[in-house]
């Protein structure tokens, strides 16, 4: 149980490879179209706002707001079973993208977590780093 590992993304997946590459340098990145300004997230090779889009990678400052969350008390995955209870949250980054992550270091989870300000905390792994969040 204790040596169960956090499941990690496939660092070579075609659409999200560049995002995960950037995490090695603790850069939290997203795409925006130079033509139509659409923010694209999760990452893709095409713009969803226009058909001749040109996506540019930008870095988030790593600050955001808790949009919603749950305290998970039961999981069948060995790693998360050992971690429970843990918090899964949807974070609205200040730049727009909304991402799923864990809120760490929260002692007393309650409804007031929605709307709270958070900042990214990187958890380093061999091939990439995982963006977790802590209350600001």
């Amino acid at each position: 149980m204790t040596d169960a590992k956090r499941p990690l993304p496939d660092a070579e997946e075609a659409d999200t490879r560049a995002f995960w590459q950037a995490t090695k340098a603790h850069r939290l990145s997203y795409q925006q179209c130079r033509q139509c300004n659409t923010v694209v997230f999760y990452p893709r090779a095409h713009c969803t706002g226009c058909t001749n889009g040109e996506l540019e990678w930008k870095d988030s400052a790593g600050s955001g707001t808790v949009y919603t969350y749950s305290v998970v008390r039961q999981s069948y995955h060995p790693f998360f079973r050992g971690l429970a209870p843990y918090i899964v949250a949807w974070i609205d980054l200040d730049e727009g993208p909304r991402l799923v992550s864990n809120l760490i270091g929260v002692d007393t989870p309650d409804l007031s977590l929605i709307g709270r300000r958070v900042t990214v905390v990187w958890e380093d792994h061999e091939t990439l780093a995982v963006p977790l969040f802590a209350l600001a």
Binding site: P7, L8, P9, E13, T16, V72, F80, V100, S101
Partner: peptide
């Protein structure tokens, strides 16, 4: 691939 690390049951 973006949220597999977070344990979203």
């Amino acid at each position: 691939n973006m949220d597999v690390f977070a344990g979203l049951t």
